[in-house]
Simulated assay, not measured.
Amino acid sequence: MFKYSFGYRSKVAYIFIGSVIGVISLLYTNYLARELMRKEQFEIDLWARGIALWNYIDPRSNTEREINLSIANNVTTIPAIMTDDYLRVIEYMNVPKEIIDNPAKLRSTIEHMCNSPDRQPIKIITPEGVELTVYYDDSSLLKSIIFFPYIQLGLIGIFISFAFITFRSSKQNEQNRVWVGMAKETAHQLGTPTSSLLGWIEYLKSMDIAPEATDEMSKDIQRLMKVANRFGKIGSTTQLSRVDVLQEVSRTVDYFQTRIPKNVTLRIEKSCTGELDAMINPSLFEWVMENLLKNALDALQGKGDILVWIGVRDKWAVVDVKDTGKGMTKSMYNKIFRPGFTTKTRGWGLGLSLSRRIVVDYHNGKIFVKESEVGKGTTFRIMIKKA
């Protein structure tokens, strides 16, 4: 389950507000575009009639000529072509002359002008009975208005995405600071009782007690000190050193060998000989191995097998942790690495999340579910670049 998550309602509110603004803008701009389209159709109709009647106006009537000329000159932004029945150009405006002089380009332009159902050619009959046809296109202003809402929607989408990412990043940074503070405080609180326990171990060694018991107790105390040290390093700069991965993994497996249930077998296989060096932080890398082995033990539920395989893949040192536990579906492969996600009744769901951060962020490596099948088990893979 998720114990920590980004506010679902906040995300819905952002999306809803952005969608409402976008829809209102789109509807209003569409209304303006249609009004402008009707205005341009009216202007083209006037222009066409003015051109058709130009030669039939009484030359002595200056008023009629001025009105007609004013109508023709006011239509300055709309591309239009007037032709006769034989597609011969009678008049044109706002269309390049090279298109008018090229029959193929002219026909292509006229076909484009006829493509829109909102732009029907205008038929004009001259006083002589000649039918003229006017083809026209949207003005640059109308085209801008038509495309503007889509640009606006894109900008709104970018704004919402930016706001969401910024808010989530701020939330994550705040949570990270809380976790770092808790981790350092935990390390501090563990320090005092651990030191006291070391003193009691030395006292027990001076008494007549089996050395095996005190040795195992010492190992557990050393483990507690390592845990405290790990918590103390969270949020600090990670120091990497050249370490033999084979030896580091073997040490962790050996520690678990004496602490697993009797019905669980833990084996280690090495497909390479000699040393397998990589730049790692031993304490943090050991933490990752412990998390994977603990998860494997939880999946087995007291009975089954765990195999730790160490090998090389090109430039990578590879460690596989395979169990015969309950397994998982593919949909869970990425979810299990999210902070707060856990399928257990206890725990904070941070083990695998911390493991991914240690491997990916601190070691520039990879950690992922290699394979898993419900009822048969899971294999986790760690990949660290060789030194």
Rank of each mutant, 00 (worst) to 15 (best):
L198G: 14
S250G: 01
R242Y: 08
Y203F: 12
G235H: 07
I221M: 08
R242S: 07
L240S: 04
M217S: 08
Q239D: 03
I221F: 12
T214K: 10
K233R: 12
Q239V: 12
S250K: 07
P193T: 07
L197H: 03
L224M: 09
R230Q: 05
D215R: 10
E248V: 12
E202Q: 11
E212L: 02
L197T: 01
V227K: 08
P211H: 00
Q247H: 10
V253K: 00
M225N: 08
Q247N: 14
M207V: 01
M207Y: 01
R251V: 09
I209M: 11
S195Q: 05
R230L: 05
K219R: 13
M225V: 07
T237D: 09
T214S: 12
R242D: 10
M207P: 01
E202Y: 08
T214P: 01
L198R: 13
M207G: 15
E202C: 12
V243N: 00
M217N: 00
T192K: 11
S218C: 00
T238F: 02
T252A: 12
M207R: 11
V243R: 01
S236V: 05
D244H: 03
R223L: 05
V249W: 13
L240F: 01
D215E: 08
R242L: 04
F231P: 00
S195C: 02
M225C: 06
E202R: 09
S236N: 14
G235E: 10
Q247C: 06
D244P: 05
T237V: 15
T192M: 13
T237A: 10
R242T: 00
M225E: 11
T194K: 13
V253M: 10
V249M: 07
V243E: 15
T238D: 10
R223G: 04
T252Y: 03
A210M: 06
R230G: 02
F231L: 10
L198T: 11
S206M: 11
Q239C: 00
T252E: 09
V245R: 03
T252V: 14
S250E: 01
A213L: 08
S195P: 00
